[in-house]
């Protein structure tokens, strides 16, 4: 097994008095898609949002344990969440383009981080991002139109383009296809697969079929505990744990 890119050790997360995650130890490998699955409320999204510290925005949320990315401790006092989130991008459940033009949506991260030194470079990077997200051909001639004029699937790919524009190392995806129709879902799944070679991807999904289709590794959560983790094929065909077995066969969840 290769050295893990993201390593969670003894992670406990609390929302006020409620504990959402119990003693999670999880390794996530670079340039692979890791799927976090489990019934709703199992803590998979909480773990995802702990990786780029989006949980900091919830005042009552408390993190305990250690989480490292590329050997850097995410929760060390010296960490600047702005720098962290610039390198650990996130795609959300519902497509949430800004109420700006398609171009401005993709350029947003570049502008706040001042990653482009000239207008030319900005345009090039926006184009590159949209191409990487497989959206360029559909929007090339209407970059000035508002982002929410696109269809749901296109909007989600716009959000992915927006995320990869700042060239993060990791992309976190929180049920990115749950609001999309099957055709749009297929397009986005294809895109995720193609992004794997450049990014480490962690995806929370409700759909086991999706996990099976796009991920290389799968982690199964239940009631805040990590039950089982391994190669996707193994987890689905030969689960070691009875709870996993019950979940993938549809008996719980």
């Amino acid at each position: 097994m290769t050295k893990p890119f993201i390593a969670a050790r003894a992670v406990n997360v609390f929302y006020g008095a409620n504990q959402a995650l119990f003693d999670i130890d999880l390794d996530i490998e670079a340039n692979k898609v890791t799927a976090l699955i489990g019934p709703s409320g199992c803590g998979k999204s909480t773990l995802l949002r702990s990786i780029n510290r989006m949980n900091d925005l919830i005042a009552a949320c408390r993190f305990d344990g250690s989480l490292q990315i590329g050997g850097q401790d995410v929760y060390a006092p010296a960490v600047d969440v702005v720098a962290l989130r610039a390198q650990v991008g996130m795609v959300f459940q519902k497509p949430n383009p800004f109420p700006k033009s398609i171009y401005e949506n993709v350029a947003y991260g570049l502008k706040i981080h001042r990653l482009a030194t000239s207008k030319r470079e900005m345009q090039d990077r926006v184009e590159w991002s949209l191409k990487s997200a497989g959206l360029w051909d559909e929007v090339a001639d209407r970059l000035d139109e508002p982002g929410n004029s696109l269809s749901g699937g296109q909007q989600q790919r716009l959000c992915i383009a927006r995320t990869i524009a700042v060239q993060p190392k990791v992309i976190l995806m929180d049920e990115p296809c749950s609001a999309l129709d099957p055709i749009a879902t297929a397009v986005v799944e294809e895109l995720i697969d193609s992004l794997r070679k450049d990014y480490t991807i962690v995806i929370v999904t409700h759909s086991m079929q999706q996990a099976a289709r796009i991920s290389q590794r799968t982690a199964f959560f239940h009631m805040g505990k990590l039950i089982e983790v391994g190669h996707t094929k193994d987890v689905f065909t030969n689960p070691q744990n009875e709870q996993t077995q019950n979940y993938i066969t549809g008996r719980i969840g």
Partner: peptide, 10 residues
Amino acid sequence: INFSKHAGFN
């Protein structure tokens, strides 16, 4: 990988 305040990004 650098998450400190010297990571760039202005």
